[in-house]
């Protein structure tokens, strides 16, 4: 900052800056070391999972059905997407329409405050509690059985608060005048929603959906007791169990056979690649002008 280095060192000594300068350099070194450590951990996780996955992946794992000790992962891969799709089916309508309600409500702010509060609380419900609820109520009480619907609702409950909040934020980023102009031209709420909110916030909505998918695809605890596992594809929406990748990771590594471990590695590799790609895509969409 100052030009005369000589002068500065004198000042440093004079004001006792020596010890403070050392403290500053130490903080700098330590914080860089911590950053390097975290980068190392991240590289270790990615390298280990991707490396052991790639080392044991075979073509047949991607083309055949399996049961976590023999066969492949195709049923689990498709099942994961089916469950995530069901989750979206249950969470997108309340996510978008609920967000429209929140940004539209000018007079009844108390209701929208309560909705926002409950949405926030819902993100903090532990996933296994949603899983237990899904088992007791959806699987047993409503008689859905281990199924796409039960697993999809359990995932949807987890995805809904993320979707709702992100969509709400992207609605709020729309210039206020644009909405007011549309009202002034005589448009009603449906027109505003379909012609202003949805097209203007489409990137935000898409990015939110991708983020919710990336979270849902990696979840396990909600699904253990709501989706079950299936050696093939589910035959219907109800009472037909579904396979998913995180289950293969969890059970595969606990089974004695070497091949189960390989299936677990490959599933973990697929998961980590898919989820990282989704996160980057979600960020890319928002950043792109």
């Amino acid at each position: 900052m100052t030009d005369g280095i000589q002068e500065e060192t004198v000042l440093i000594k004079w004001k006792g800056l020596g010890i403070r300068k050392i403290k500053d350099s130490m903080a700098k070194v330590v914080s860089y070391l911590i950053l390097a450590l975290m980068a190392g951990v991240l590289v270790s996780i990615f390298a280990y999972i991707l490396g052991s996955g790639a080392a044991h992946a075979t073509i047949s794992m991607f083309t055949t059905f399996g049961d976590t000790t023999t066969g492949g992962l195709l049923n689990a891969i498709i099942g994961t997407w089916m469950l995530v799709g069901m989750g979206l089916l249950f969470s997108i309508p309340p996510g978008i329409l609920g967000a429209i309600y929140i940004v539209n409500s000018k007079s009844n702010t108390r209701v929208s405050y309560i909705v926002k509060l409950f949405t926030d609380i819902l993100t903090s419900v532990p996933s296994i509690v949603i899983g237990l609820f899904g088992y007791l109520v959806l699987v047993i009480k409503f008689g859905f059985g281990y199924s796409l619907v039960a697993g999809g609702i359990a995932l949807g409950i987890m995805m809904l608060p993320y979707l709702l909040r992100i969509i709400e934020i992207s609605f709020r980023n729309i210039p206020r005048e644009q909405i007011e102009n549309a009202y002034a031209l005589g448009a009603d709420d449906i027109k505003i929603a379909s012609r202003v909110y949805l097209p203007q916030a489409s990137k935000g909505i898409l990015s939110g959906i991708l983020l919710a998918v990336s979270i849902a695809a990696g979840e396990t605890a909600q699904l253990i007791y709501t989706a079950g596992f299936n050696n093939a594809l589910p035959t219907g929406f109800l009472k037909s169990q579904v396979a998913y990748l995180t289950y293969v990771v969890w059970t595969g590594i606990n089974q004695p056979s070497q091949y189960s471990h390989y299936l677990a590695y490959v599933s973990a590799m697929i998961l980590i690649l898919t989820i990282t790609a989704l996160i980057f895509l979600s960020k890319y969409i928002v950043r792109r002008k």
């Binding site: 975290m38 999972i49 990696g218 990771v249 973990a268 998961l271 980590i272």
Partner: peptide, 13 residues
């Protein structure tokens, strides 16, 4: 990225 890694993958690692 740490937040995006699924918990079973953390468990495996």
């Amino acid at each position: 990225l740490f937040a995006g890694i699924p918990s079973v993958v953390y468990g495996l690692w």
